[in-house]
Design a protein around this nucleic acid. Structure first.
Lengths: 235, 235
DNA sequence: CAGTTCGTGGGACATGCGTCCCATGACGAG
DNA sequence: CTCGTCATGGGACGCATGTCCCACGAACTG
């Protein structure tokens, strides 16, 4: 049977604990945003907290830094007067998204690395946070939503997201040796290719068995996963 | 000026050093292939070597494990009687490649993680090893090679590789929550989309400035990067 | 006000990484 | 054979992660 370990924060005196935790996360976020990957001791000291207490709130440095990931607040990536053509809309979103990724590349790479550090089946899968890219892409593709089934539409969005993410950029730069600009241009082209192909040959529908990976959070709507706000990092 | 630190293995008594190094790498490779991520001490002990000596050959655990990455030996991923249609050839290669990735998923994820661990500009960029996927894809697409410029062809190959790699699979599974089979099916579809788009709208040519990332190894031919054989891991 | 609860801090411990210094012992040159 | 070079081994150190135990002190309870 499963034990479902209750987090440390539940129970009496919760206000004090919430303050402590928020201070810790905020301090860690500041350090991460400053471009460094802080030690647990560093983050604790920055929050005027003891190292021991920090470990009472997060089981590992990885968990703390994941919770401290600065989230982009923008609700949309479309320009002020967005075009109607889905291809143009997608291209605008991809261009903005890629520019944002490259602007914060160090943080993006850190988070990517952290998300992979649960190499073997860890004790707790540590829910991975999903950014807003999926919502941004879906918004750009609103015009073709009716041409596909919900599941096909979601698959298309996912394939585009997988193509333009930091994982792809990092591979193109590190291994393939492209410049960052060339990598960005290539992912833009790839996104267009996926969209165009979807209008003639839709992506495969997912298997009936549903998701078998480690979903980042439960969701009923197949598209609009609403990630946490920058301030509220607690589940 | 750059110091170009000469590796420990150069100089007198090189045969002995080569034997020591090979034993260490072989021991590490066995452990990695067994699914674990050994400590430096483990790998050294498995090679009947002291920990100190191991550090004489590799500056970090990361460098040792990267050198120990088991390489797939297959020279081609096409079936025995390959079709002529480029789309069919590519699909066969992508299917085989993806199956291989999922078969060795733990190792692939470990290597991906290691390749990202040079987060900030490390002391030594530690040349990343490039698998044979690029050669396999290029072979599958031989039929369309004449329709594109060399550079466009390479961009197409790179975009396909970026789409079907472990990075994309890991994101689709971990974050998007797809099952491994669904993720594989989606990358197959994506690869087809990229190929089909390339025949009508070729990928963008890279900027004149050339590669600005950290190329894994010098190469004259833009396509056929020949990675190291499993046995010879020394540069 | 007295007693319990509970968040916190401090210190110790074990492990792993990476570095340094020094001893040992095998190899090769004279 | 002898001496010096050189690969190796052993042990120590500093640092970070993660765990554990115990004491302090503030807040809640009666």
């Amino acid at each position: 049977m499963k034990v479902m370990s209750t987090p440390y924060e539940t129970g009496g005196r919760s206000a004090q604990k919430a303050r402590t935790r928020d201070a810790l996360v905020a301090a860690a976020r500041d350090l991460v945003a400053a471009g460094v990957t802080p030690t647990v001791e560093d983050a604790a000291a920055a929050a005027s907290i003891s190292r021991t207490t920090a470990y009472r709130y997060f089981p590992s440095k990885r968990a703390l830094l994941l919770a401290a990931h600065p989230e982009i607040a923008a609700a949309s990536m479309l320009p002020a007067d967005p075009p109607h053509d889905p291809a143009a809309r997608l291209d605008a979103v991809v261009a903005n998204f890629t520019a944002m990724i490259l602007d914060t590349e160090a943080q993006q790479r850190t988070m990517l690395r952290l998300s992979l550090e649960a190499d073997a089946a860890e004790r707790d899968p540590l829910p991975l946070r999903q950014g807003r890219a999926i919502a941004w892409i879906a918004e750009a593709l609103d015009g073709v939503r009716g041409d596909l089934s919900d599941q096909q539409f979601r698959q298309l969005v996912l394939s585009i997201r997988a193509t333009i993410g930091i994982e792809a950029i990092a591979w193109l730069v590190d291994v393939a040796g492209l410049s960052r600009n060339d990598a960005a241009a290539l992912t833009r082209w790839s996104a267009q290719a996926l969209l165009h192909r979807a209008t003639t040959t839709p992506p495969p529908a997912p298997s009936r068995s549903g998701r078998k990976g480690r979903p980042s959070r439960a969701t009923s709507d197949p598209i609009s996963n609403t990630p946490a706000e920058p301030g509220s990092t607690r589940p």
